[in-house]
Design a protein around this nucleic acid. Structure first.
Lengths: 214, 214
DNA sequence: TGCCTTTCGCTACGGGTCGTAGCGTAACTG
DNA sequence: CAGTTACGCTACGACCCGTAGCGAAAGGCA
């Protein structure tokens, strides 16, 4: 949750206030909702949290790091209940993800920190660790379920399975983000149905063809 | 190219310098390469272009609008030569798009302006008009070619065709962007082959199934 | 209990960017 | 030539950044 890996053996001295941590992250989300990314300032967040600006800088080096931590927790709400079929599972998680992207705090923050990360390798790693990689579990779980149901063939070679998982993840997350933020059109039932049909159909075609390329 | 729709009947007075326009946009791209989005300032661009800062503000209201115009022209390089099959066409355009996203000026600018556009409706429209919508031609052309070749069935109902075009566009653009900027892994031959196989397979499955849902 | 360490809120600061205003000059029109 | 608009230049108030220094607060430890 906090930025620095616990300060080297900070067993002595006054401990960091966990209330301040929570207040700052909450204030950051509120500021994102009201002001958006570009107009959010460290001083404003400090004021909302009832905290000195220096307290923010003791924990996070800059705005990007703070916002990543403030938003990351929202992504842990995503779940993948077993709905009985691969296609139903895909549709459900896509709709969940879309609802998350509709929230103003994530909508305005996500693209901004990714943009920033193209010039900031530590930030990119933080985003992956705090947000991206943790959601790949959904793809893994969905694929394994489909294999158990017999909707997808059992694993052929491991590298290909991992590569396909990564591909599906990029396709789903990328398509939803692009639809919601770039095309700025609704990620609604009909669209999700089309996307799911395309994916499930594509996976099925690759499976029946048995081509090593897919 | 320029920001304002030609100033209402500006037939009189000194005309805008087209050399300045070109110099500013070129300077903006150079600044993006060297500094990235967040450290790019209007004053810096003006200095590089050999132009007064006020001249920039006469043309563009803020950094985002300027950068959109500076980057938009790069996207017109995308082409779709007929390579004989739907899959080959898809692979080719994906690789082209990936190469474009590898350039530092587009990589750092694209996500940033999209992020900004979530709180700036005019900017969003500008992005769509200058960049996004103009590339949908590639999807249209590719689909029609595939239909002529018999790889895809002829149009059923028009709305469904348009919706599928939009879906394919979001999937391809979104997946490539996500792979390149979020996952930060290479959009190379093997990955593109997998993506193309997934798409072509999915489109084929939907076609043979003849379901109205896809 | 008293000492040490670290964090706390607060204030203040230099440095930088923003976006605008005002000026005199340059360029083009009729 | 008069009228109009764009130009370069300078200067400005406003804002935000990130840091430093201060005394006070809150823990650990002997």
């Amino acid at each position: 949750m906090c930025s620095r890996t616990n300060p080297r053996s900070s067993r002595t001295g006054r401990p960091r206030s966990t209330e301040a941590d929570a207040a700052i992250l909450e204030a950051t989300r509120a500021a994102l909702v009201e002001l958006g990314w570009s107009k959010l300032t460290m001083g404003d967040v400090a004021g909302r949290a009832g905290v000195a600006k220096t307290t923010l800088y003791r924990r996070w080096g800059n705005k990007s790091e703070l916002v990543v931590d403030a938003v990351a927790v929202l992504f842990d709400e995503l779940e993948l209940p077993d709905l009985g079929s691969l296609r139903a599972d895909v549709e459900h998680v896509v709709l969940q993800f879309a609802a998350l992207l509709e929230r103003p705090e994530t909508k305005t923050a996500l693209m901004a920190v990714v943009a920033e990360s193209t010039r900031d390798e530590p930030l990119r790693r933080r985003i992956r660790a705090s947000i991206v990689d943790r959601q790949k579990r959904l793809v893994l779980e969905g694929r394994m379920r489909a294999q158990r149901r017999g909707e997808l063939p059992a694993d052929r070679d491991l590298p290909a399975v991992g590569a396909t998982d990564d591909l599906i993840f990029d396709v789903i997350a990328g398509a939803v983000v692009h639809r919601a933020l770039v095309s700025a059109e609704p990620v609604d039932g009909p669209w999700v149905a089309r996307l799911s049909a395309l994916l499930v159909g594509g996976l099925g075609a690759a499976a029946t063809a048995g081509t090593p390329n897919a």
